[in-house]
Amino acid sequence: MNAAVTVREALSGLVEFAALGGWQWAEPHGAAFSFMTGDPDDVCTVEDSGYVIRKHERGMVSRPVIRAARLADIEKFLSFRYGNAVRRGRGLPALWLADAPDAELGAEQNGFSASGTPADTRVSWTEPSGRQEVVLTYRSAGEWARYARFSAQEIRDSFLNPAGSPIFIPLSR
């Protein structure tokens, strides 16, 4: 990211998208940014390993939900995380990822490998720019492997598309 571009500017598409689902941008002291709904809130800090999103819920201990070296991966994750809230706000049915097997710890599937523990799963894959990695929960790791190769804009566009295409499929009611 160019030093002259702020994080908010770099994430402007996500900021607008999240607002459609009730999430508001904030820049609290000690954090890179936050998306707030009142409860829960997602707070991003910058640490040695890159960006860390923690979910803050009233009365609960905050916990990391993703760690990533690249802001682009944080943007993809949050675009996916807020997508169905955006759809609810527009009166559209929830979407689901097409069925695919979850990544097994210690195995490689579709170019993604997962290692670690269920609470701290490291997902690695190769892109033209090189080897990439994020750390998520095991449940989120399986989802990540299904949408990580799409851009954040493609993820948001799919959630805004009434049919959910090209990435998602509607949930049966």
Rank of each mutant, 00 (worst) to 15 (best):
M1L: 09
N2V: 05
A3G: 05
A3S: 12
V5T: 13
V7I: 15
R8E: 15
E9S: 08
E9P: 02
A10R: 08
L11W: 00
G13N: 12
V15E: 12
E16T: 12
E16L: 11
A19N: 07
A19D: 13
L20K: 12
G22T: 09
W23C: 00
P28I: 11
F33G: 04
S34I: 04
T37R: 15
T37P: 01
G38S: 12
G38W: 11
D39S: 15
D39L: 01
D41M: 02
V46Y: 05
V46W: 06
S49D: 06
Y51E: 07
Y51L: 02
V52R: 14
I53P: 04
I53M: 11
R54K: 15
K55N: 11
E57I: 01
R58I: 11
V61Y: 08
R63H: 14
V65D: 05
V65F: 07
I66F: 06
R67K: 15
A68K: 05
A69F: 04
A69E: 12
R70F: 02
E75A: 10
L78Q: 14
L78Y: 13
Y82Q: 04
Y82R: 06
Y82G: 01
N84M: 00
R87F: 00
R87D: 01
R88C: 04
G89Y: 10
G91C: 07
L92N: 07
A94N: 12
L95W: 04
W96K: 14
L97E: 06
L97T: 05
L97D: 02
A98W: 10
A98G: 13
D99V: 11
P101Y: 09
P101S: 14
P101L: 14
D102Y: 12
A103E: 06
A103K: 06
L105E: 11
G106I: 03
A107Q: 13
A107K: 11
E108M: 03
Q109R: 15
N110M: 10
A114R: 11
A114E: 05
S115W: 03
G116F: 04
P118W: 07
T121G: 03
E127S: 03
P128F: 00
R131D: 00
R131N: 00
Q132R: 02
Q132K: 02
V134G: 02
L136Y: 09
T137R: 13
T137V: 07
Y138R: 13
Y138G: 07
G142N: 06
G142I: 04
E143Q: 13
Y147M: 08
A148L: 02
A148F: 06
A152P: 07
A152Y: 04
A152I: 08
Q153F: 02
Q153P: 02
E154H: 07
E154P: 05
R156H: 08
S158G: 08
F159Q: 04
G164W: 03
S165V: 10
I167T: 00
P170W: 02
S172E: 13
S172T: 10
